[in-house]
Amino acid sequence: MKTRITISLFAFVALAVFLIGAAKNDGYGSFKPKPLKLEIPKGWPKPTNNIFVNNKLTEEGFQLGRKLFYDGNLSSDGTTSCGSCHQQFAAFSTYDHDLSHGVNNTFTDRNAPALFNLAWSPLYHWDGGVNNIEVQPLNPITAKNEMGETLPNVLSKLKADTSYSRLFKAAFGDAAITSQRLLKALAQFTGSLVSSNSRYDKWKKGELKFNPIEEAGYDIYKTNCAVCHAEPLFTDYGFRNNGLSLNRFADIGRQKITGLASDSLKFKVPSLRNVQYSFPYMHDGRFNSLEAVLNYYISGIDHDQPMLDPILKKPIVLTEKQKQQLKYFLYTLTDTAFTKSKRFAPGQ
């Protein structure tokens, strides 16, 4: 009797497993995404908030995110993708543009920031208004002077494009296309953009030697820049008022987010990595060259600005020669393995 119950129980379970398995087989094959791990470069801190805890990083999720990042259908007229303003060869900033172009011949009102090492950033945007990498794309997608589209429209366009159902299924287990999955996939791509293979990184690892100019430049950097643009990420991810005058958009920066007068004209400290390619500089792209930026810090700061960051109250003094040395050091932060990586380029 006992054996019979065991046998029938076994048969019942087997039948149930078979039925569940059959129901799941919808022609796309089984759901076995390939897990990926965000590599933390040697000597770097752990990311402050692990962006992949609630968004399991997989090859399939990354590839879906990559396709979405370069898909113009995320914009109202099909012309503008994330990659339009975040160009890989410019370290995912807009090359040689103070402001970027949105749909309908519009201009953005801030300089498109370079995108890399985002997993280490506690907040996003120049003013830190975005508190999670996953919800960042909602801004450019819906802004009238960026992609000018609505979230429901984006989803219906993706649903109409049959190539996506297979990719969503591969990344998330079924073919449902939702805003949450769209945003999580994009975060898997953008969060994976790690730039850590510059000449500086190789020097740190002892794989090459700096020339005397670069060495001198590094010392100048350590003395004058390293508090805010801290190694190894070359930013402290702080928000600081570096004395810039209010621009024509009356952009008060972080104060708009916090409502605090003490945050007036504070903007995020950008990383100096790939700075050779991310010009023009500052939140509104007002400086066209590294020369102009250095000149600003040496002689352009308005020291009467009441909210000027205390660290800039002490003047920065550099000779012409030192400026050149510093620039040569900054060029060592260029990571062409990153800007030319096929993995981050549009798919074929």
Partner: peptide, 24 residues
């Protein structure tokens, strides 16, 4: 939940109850 990224159901940004420029 205001800092937890992309969510679904009642908290889906499709419900037009999410501030994008100042997350929350």
């Amino acid at each position: 939940r205001n800092v937890s990224g992309a969510q679904d159901g009642a908290l889906d940004p499709l419900n037009d109850m999410f501030w994008t420029w100042n997350s929350g």
